[in-house]
Write a protein that binds this DNA or RNA. Structure first.
Lengths: 226, 226
DNA sequence: ATAATAGTGTCTATAAGACACTATGAC
DNA sequence: GTCATAGTGTCTTATAGACACTATTAT
């Protein structure tokens, strides 16, 4: 009866909105095992490094995202002996994280600057995904969906300032539903500290929209319903 | 820059109600490191074993609980390099679980049959706790408190049949609040599949109480508020 | 003017909270 | 009868949902 000695990976389900669609960051594996398949950006823990440290390192190095614009949260750990089918002899335990990233200015995506590619979640799940990463993506997306209900984390998917419509579209996109604008506005504005009116406006095709920034509230009580 | 190779522990925050008080299972460490301090029941993963396997093994072997009467759920992983201060040279990553156990018949607790002791949560946190297990206990209790709000998991802390008052007392005990019996009854009975009336009754000091058993609903929508 | 987007007003339906009330047992 | 516990009825208040309406811009 031997005890396990394993390497630890920190894998990140990085989510971001692009063109009103939820995207996840994927990297194509350049080495065995699972060479050529798509996987979550991840890294092995170094000595003297926590899983959180490693995930933060991955976000800045591999995804090239500014750390302060990303909300990072532990998702779960995956330790099934068969999860890394290509290397049955060597166990890898993954501590998975969900990262909610601000919508990015166009040039930062898909350029050579980052090794990762942002892929719509639906399309990502239809690709050949390495290991158990398809399940981790599903778990991460489901976690994000749930968190929107009872936290204010939707703002983490938006830039510093945003309109009510922007915020509502985050919910509609992540949940795949449509929400009544009037009721949504009332709900958000009646939650103290959810958003703060900047006094600024954004002009576009129609009536100018008030610009808000995130307040310091974290919980939504009572929650929003999908 | 060396990669980490670590042993993996599965530690269990086992919660149960005794005398209208929330208890957590603790074991006193018999060996170094942290000899003599109190810790969560836990075990190292064996080769070919997942963290879930190891936690289930710990529940049956160390806590002597029948597996089907315990609801086991992953809590989080703890990987801070300094978390096991006594052995800085050897890293241990813990995958922590929350286990909700049925209230037990008296003889099963504190006897020689189990190596663990059930301790009221408050008292447990005032003892000398090994490693970062005090934090894990707090995280686990907080997770359980939150889960009661939007799931039907409260029934996992009760025996197979129970009265409305029993169920209400689970909430009151875990949350440390008091709930209006009339409103609580309406809320529970209006959630399809939360509880099922067995037709049986329990007789005691006052009017006999209807006995219920758990239904197959898992989510509570809208949630109950603390 | 028209289209487009932002935002308000208001009615209704649902559910929570407060709490007075009735019901059924042991003694 | 009293006490203890279980359970119901009902009024008030808060909020979600539906949806008609007004407001302000670009073109």
């Amino acid at each position: 009866m031997k005890l396990l000695n394993a390497r630890i990976a920190a894998d990140v389900v990085a989510l971001s909105l692009r063109n009103d669609e939820l995207h996840v960051a994927l990297t194509q594996r350049k080495n065995e095992p699972a060479k050529g398949l798509w996987s979550l950006p991840g890294t092995f823990l170094r000595e003297e490094e926590s899983a959180e440290d490693a995930a933060a390192r991955e976000i800045t190095e591999e995804l090239d995202l500014p750390r302060e614009q990303v909300r990072l949260e532990q998702l779960a750990s995956y330790s099934d002996p068969a999860r890394d089918a290509a290397t049955p002899s060597e166990r890898v335990l993954t501590v998975a994280f969900v990262a909610l990233a601000s919508a990015l200015p166009d040039p930062a995506v898909g350029t050579a600057a980052t090794a990762a590619e942002w892929v719509p979640v639906e399309e990502a799940l239809s690709r050949d995904i390495a290991f158990d990463h398809a399940r981790i993506i599903r778990d991460g997306v489901e976690r994000a969906r749930g968190k929107l209900e009872y936290t204010t984390q939707a703002v983490a998917l938006l830039p510093e300032t945003f309109t009510m419509s922007d915020l509502r579209r985050v919910y509609e996109t992540v949940w795949g539903t449509s929400l009544d604008a009037a009721n949504f506005n009332r709900k958000v504005l009646s939650t103290p500290g959810f958003v703060i009116d900047t006094g600024e406006q954004r002009r576009g095709r129609g009536r100018p929209a008030a610009l808000y920034r995130a307040g310091d509230a974290t919980r939504l009580n009572p929650p929003l319903h999908r």
